[in-house]
Amino acid sequence: MCKQQISDNELVALFIKGDENALQKLIIRHEKKVYTSIYLLVKDSDLANDIFQDTFIKVINTLRNGNYNEEGKFLSWVLRIAHNLTIDYFRGQKRMPMAYDTEEYSIFDTLPLMDSNIEDRIINKQIQSQVRQLIEELPFDQKEVVIMRHYGNMSFKEIAEATNVSINTSLGRMRYAIINLRKIIQDNRLQLSAD
């Protein structure tokens, strides 16, 4: 028999009615995407944990105050909160990460080149860690779009609204991010497999 997964909005409704297990399920379901999104922006695990905690405390309070719009996607909403808290943090520090939104900007120089003698087979963990590093090194505005689109499942229209740019700009940022990632992966001879 096929067991259907309870939807986010059903879990939200249960939590609002007082079922804390529903909140736990929502956290378990989305914690990796939310945490990774924060971590990739702040590049510090302690700080990422703090912002992750603040994000869900805000989620809890907003849900209980009845201010959540059920029509929206839960994960996108949570990621927008996380994103705003991250931006607030940078503003508080009076240092926004530099945003190089040009084709000329190259992140390749900042990455360690792999030794050509290294074994052909790279274990998954190494690849994952390297890819994380590649994303971390992307210009802030490109990274922001990758996170919102890929992890937050937000449409380019929603991303454009959240970041105050046009849809074409948000698509363009994603395009540069993918071009950068593809080139880095090819240059570093990381094995890409679509299977």
Binding site: K33, V34, Y35, Y39, N49, I127, Q128, L181, L192, A194
Partner: peptide
């Protein structure tokens, strides 16, 4: 598609005690 899969594999988990403290 491959890059998109790699992005999926790059997810990391927050500290367990943070999730506990939220609960």
């Amino acid at each position: 598609i491959a890059i998109s899969k790699v992005l999926d594999q790059s997810l990391i988990t927050p500290s367990r005690c943070i999730s506990e403290s939220i609960m």
